[in-house]
Simulated scan of single mutants.
Amino acid sequence: MQIVTFKVRALEEKIEKISKDAGISPWNGPGGRGVAFTARLSNNQTVFSQQTIVFDDALTNIGRAYNPVTGIFIAPYTGRYMFSLSVRAQYQKQVCAEIVAEPEVVGQVAAGDTEIERASASLTVVTSLEKGNEVYVRETKTWTGHFFGDGFTVFTGYLLQ
C-alpha cells in the first residue's frame, strides 16, 4: 500500500509541475479553491415566461456557489467563468432559455416544435464576473416552456481564472 501511495503522490507532483509550467492551475480559484457545478432537471418542468429554471439535481457543486433550491449561481470570486446550457423540449413542445449574468443576457438557446418529437439545443459562453454576481437560466418565450427532465436539461459552470 505504501508503494501505491508513493506512486500516486509522484503523479500528483508531476501534474502540478506540468500545470505550473503551462501557466495553468489544476485547481481553480484563489489559493487552489475550486469552483465548478453541474446541475440538471430531475423531472419534466413547465416554466413560465421570465421564470428562473431551477436545476434541482446538483451532480457537482465544488465551492457550493450554485444553489439547487433557487437555481442561482453566485460568483465567489472575481474572474472569467464558463457556462454551458443544454436543453431538451418535451415531446412536440418548445423551449427558449437564456443564461443571465445580472444584469445582462449572455446567451440564448431554443429547441422544439409541434412537429418535432425530440429536440435539443445547447450553448457555451465565457463571461467576466465580479464577486457576488448572480448567474441563472430563465425561460424567454412569452408563453411557457416545456423542459424535459431526467438529466436531459443541464446547466454547468466553472471558474476559468
Score class of each variant (00 low, 15 high):
V109C: 05
A75L: 07
G31Q: 05
F6C: 10
I116E: 12
T60E: 09
E98I: 01
A101G: 01
C96I: 12
G112F: 08
E12W: 07
G157T: 04
L11C: 09
V35A: 12
G132W: 05
I62Q: 14
F6V: 12
I53D: 01
S19E: 08
Q161K: 13
I24T: 14
N133L: 06
L129F: 02
F83N: 01
M82W: 00
N44G: 06
E130W: 06
D150P: 02
P30N: 11
V47G: 01
G157H: 03
V137Q: 00
I116Y: 07
Y158W: 09
E16A: 15
D21E: 15
I116P: 05
E16P: 05
T140D: 05
T144A: 13
G23S: 05
T153H: 08
E102V: 08
A110D: 07
N67M: 00
T127Q: 05
F48T: 15
S84Y: 00
V35I: 15
I53L: 12
T38M: 11
I62A: 06
P76C: 10
G132N: 08
D21I: 07
F152I: 04
E102D: 12
I24Q: 11
Y81R: 02
Q108K: 11
P26L: 12
S122C: 04
V154P: 06
L160N: 01
V105Q: 04
E104L: 10
A65T: 08
K14T: 14
K7Q: 15
A101V: 04
D113T: 12
T38E: 08
T142S: 08
F37P: 03
I24R: 14
K7W: 11
T70K: 14
L159Q: 00
G107D: 02
T144W: 07
E134I: 01
T78I: 02
I53A: 04
N61T: 02
F55W: 03
S84M: 02
S128A: 08
L159R: 00
E117N: 13
S84H: 06
I72L: 10
R33D: 09
L85R: 00
K17E: 12
G157I: 03
A75W: 04
G145N: 02
R118I: 14
Y66S: 09
G31C: 06
M1V: 13
R80I: 03
K131E: 15
T124R: 07
I74F: 07
T142W: 09
V47F: 03
K141W: 11
Y77K: 10
S49Y: 11
N28C: 09
F6T: 15
S120H: 07
A10E: 15
S128W: 02
T153V: 00
L129P: 03
V35T: 15
L123D: 04
P30W: 09
P103W: 06
A58S: 15
I24F: 13
I24Y: 15
Y158P: 00
P103G: 11
N133G: 01
S86V: 09
D21Y: 06
L11E: 08
E98Q: 06
G29I: 04
Y158D: 00
G29Q: 03
G23E: 03
G112N: 04
V126H: 02
